[in-house]
Computed example of a mutant assay.
Amino acid sequence: MSNPTPTAELSAAGVSIWLDDLSRDRLTSGGLQKLIEEKNVVGVTTNPSIFQAAISKGTAYDAQVAELAGQGLDAEAAVFRITTQDVADACEVFAPVAAASQGVDGRVSIEVDPRKAWDTQGTIEEAKRLHEAVGKDNVLIKIPATLEGLEAITETLGAGISVNVTLIFSLERYRAVINAFLLGIEKAKANGHDLSTIHSVASFFVSRVDTEIDKRLDALDTEEASSLKGKAGVANARLAYQVFEEIFSSERWALLAEAGALPQRPLWASTGVKDPAYPDTLYVTELVAPNVVNTMPEKTLDATFDHGVIEGNTISGRYDEANSVLNALEGLGVSYNDVVALLETEGLDKFVASWNELLGDVQNALDAAGKES
């Protein structure tokens, strides 16, 4: 019998591997199906930047854009149709995975319009509209973890819709996200929904924490500062898992679990290594534990499949070590609160910029198609 691949070992250790990418080419070429069969991929996440890259390249969307131009749709309506179609088609590809895992995996995420990240009511309405348009049980609606997003998370879950909470950087905000999730599940229960059909993940961003903190450590230019480089992202995520373990063993959770509710799993996002000095599987192999998701760009997935060394659980029992990293950073004057606040702002700004670029690209394509017809 051949040895299991690193991605198979990662799955066996309790990590669900999701791909952080989607395009029509992946769907029509059978490439996505191949990743399921060969590299243990059991889900997909998308975001505004991913759709912007997919739609602006190649010719895969030309026919649909021409059709939508003929119907007189504007860019916003066209983007909604294009992205919900890709996600619905991906949900079909993952339907057998969803069935085999009782809906825990086989999930495809689609994000609300990022310009609504500070608009609670607008986010709730958009979440319901996306859920209805995709029309698949295995879709996850992505809602950013802004302060305004917390109530939207609760209301969306309370309506029986599964949610991926995105752009979480701080442990304090993560606690608030879990509370919003619990309130949502309590609301769903009061509304008479079947709790066993409501799924959620909390996307905790990893590599961007190191990118910002490393920049500040480099500016200090000391030996102690250098020794802490590349450690904050993993430490922060490990402490998030400690929060997950703590809250999902509470009495409040036990009552919901008894009623059929499923825990909101931590999802490691932004797991592509930005600094070539670090191992390219750093944010995979150092963040292995049961009941987590790791959503990887294809480059990271390929690296893990090729040479990832999976050594069982690399999170539990390492919380003191993780705390000491964050404490040492504070001791050097690198403010954790300042870093995570900046990263949330930058993350949202990036998604809004990508969304606006996408709308511009699609509008240009619609105009060009309109002239040709």
Rank of each mutant, 00 (worst) to 15 (best):
D306N: 15
A289P: 00
D275P: 00
P263I: 09
K350T: 15
T304L: 09
E330R: 08
D275A: 11
P297G: 13
G317F: 07
L287H: 12
N337E: 11
N327S: 12
Q264G: 04
N291A: 08
V284F: 04
A259W: 01
D306I: 03
L301I: 11
V334T: 06
A257W: 05
L301Y: 11
G331Y: 07
L301S: 09
A289C: 04
D302A: 14
G308E: 14
T271E: 03
K299T: 10
G331M: 04
G347M: 08
T314M: 06
D320T: 13
A257G: 06
L287R: 08
V284H: 09
T295W: 14
E258A: 15
A269C: 06
S324V: 03
N327W: 01
N294E: 10
T271N: 04
S316Y: 01
A261P: 11
T271W: 03
A289E: 03
Q264R: 10
V293P: 14
G347Y: 05
T304P: 09
N313V: 07
F305E: 14
P279S: 08
V352W: 02
S335K: 11
V284K: 08
V334I: 15
Y319P: 02
D280W: 02
E330D: 13
E344S: 11
P297V: 14
D302M: 13
F305K: 04
D320H: 05
L267G: 05
T314G: 07
T285P: 04
L326D: 01
A261R: 13
G260V: 08
V288P: 06
G333A: 12
A303D: 04
E258R: 09
A353T: 15
S316P: 00
I315F: 06
K350V: 12
L301Q: 07
Y319I: 07
L343W: 05
A257E: 15
L287K: 09
Y336T: 03
L342R: 08
P276S: 12
R318Q: 15
R318V: 02
D320I: 10
V325F: 01
A259G: 02
S324F: 00
D280P: 00
Y319K: 03
T285K: 11
G260D: 10
G272V: 12
A303N: 09
L332K: 03
